[in-house]
Amino acid sequence: MTGHQGTGIVVVFYRPDGECVRNANRLVGFGCCVVIDNTEEARSASELGLDDRIVYVPNGQNRGIATAINQGIERLIAAKCTTALLFDQDSDPSPELLTRLPRLLEVELRKGGRVAVIGPAYEDSRLGGVAPFVRFGCLKLRRIQPTGFEPIEVDFLITSGSCLNLAAWRDIGPMEDTLFIDFVDLEWCVRARSKGYAVLGAPTLRLVHALGGEPLRIFGRTYPSHSPVRHYYMFRNAVALVKRSYIPWSWKSTELVKFPVRLVLYALFMRPRGSHLHMAILGIWHGLTGRTGEL
């Protein structure tokens, strides 16, 4: 099976294992495939076992998810691609998703829609199956079930599995390098919407995607878990975005409500507790004082 004309694919590596390489190799028949490798130790494509049709860019350092995506997209634009599918290294998209998502984007653009990005609903069995799409609401996110056949307007999509309209890339601008990792997708989607572009969820398509480490189960509820360093970026970038005028107050209110709850959860239930709490508080401090980039 071959991909849609004009489709390119960007996969971001960070210390990939054999399964990650196999996932990337499966993508070469679906479009121009670029792998950006943020692993600190640079290796060649042949050492990794990558298909020689893949454009491989070893950074030799962790430059963050935003920079890696920007690098990949610039290569796709140079190769005259019109759409870009983005994946994490552990994503294993179905052939249906790889072929249908760019076509859905094309259909919406032909209707005259100003669309920045379209993405599937993601499925994480550890967190209870198919996740709803999200719209911002006062003090609480509004969860939209992925039902029906028509694309659904949403406020943001996670990066992995999303399909970007590259004709809008220069107008919206690249992903924000200084955020490094967390909330990169949210900030870009909000910026796209502030410039009059739609962000669409495709309710008929699914991407199996593991969000974070082994989930935390507390009082019957399930929460994604991350490393202390990831919690640093989550808190720092959330604070940084709360300070920005173009970020809607509906999202800010939701985050401000979640802040104390998350701090209590990390302090009481995450191991090592001190490390998680320390990194979260450091993140808040750096967000308040304007520190960005890599920790």
Score class of each variant (00 low, 15 high):
1 M>N: 09
3 G>L: 00
5 Q>L: 02
6 G>S: 10
11 V>Q: 12
11 V>P: 07
12 V>G: 14
12 V>F: 07
13 F>Q: 08
13 F>R: 10
14 Y>F: 14
20 C>T: 03
22 R>C: 02
26 R>Y: 11
26 R>D: 15
29 G>E: 15
29 G>I: 08
33 C>R: 04
35 V>Q: 13
36 I>S: 11
39 T>A: 14
41 E>M: 07
42 A>N: 11
42 A>V: 09
45 A>I: 07
46 S>E: 15
50 L>I: 03
57 V>G: 12
64 G>T: 08
66 A>F: 08
67 T>I: 14
74 E>V: 14
74 E>S: 15
74 E>N: 15
78 A>C: 12
80 K>W: 08
81 C>Q: 14
84 A>C: 13
85 L>V: 13
89 Q>E: 14
90 D>Y: 03
94 S>M: 00
95 P>G: 08
101 L>E: 06
102 P>Y: 02
105 L>F: 06
107 V>P: 14
110 R>P: 02
111 K>F: 12
114 R>D: 06
116 A>V: 03
117 V>I: 05
119 G>H: 01
119 G>E: 03
121 A>T: 08
122 Y>C: 06
122 Y>W: 11
124 D>C: 04
125 S>W: 04
126 R>P: 00
128 G>C: 02
129 G>D: 12
132 P>V: 03
133 F>Y: 10
135 R>W: 01
135 R>C: 13
138 C>I: 10
145 Q>P: 05
146 P>K: 04
147 T>I: 10
149 F>K: 12
162 S>V: 01
162 S>D: 07
163 C>L: 11
164 L>P: 03
168 A>P: 03
170 R>L: 12
172 I>L: 06
173 G>C: 10
176 E>Y: 01
176 E>M: 06
185 D>T: 05
187 E>Q: 12
192 A>Y: 00
193 R>A: 15
195 K>T: 07
196 G>E: 05
198 A>D: 07
200 L>M: 14
202 A>F: 00
204 T>I: 01
207 L>H: 08
208 V>G: 04
209 H>W: 00
210 A>Q: 05
215 P>E: 08
218 I>D: 06
221 R>A: 10
230 R>W: 00
239 V>E: 14
246 Y>L: 12
247 I>D: 14
249 W>G: 15
255 E>G: 00
258 K>R: 13
259 F>M: 08
267 A>I: 03
268 L>C: 09
271 R>A: 11
275 S>R: 09
275 S>T: 06
275 S>G: 06
276 H>T: 07
277 L>S: 12
277 L>Q: 04
279 M>K: 08
282 L>Y: 05
282 L>G: 09
284 I>N: 07
284 I>S: 11
285 W>A: 13
287 G>L: 07
288 L>E: 10
293 G>K: 05
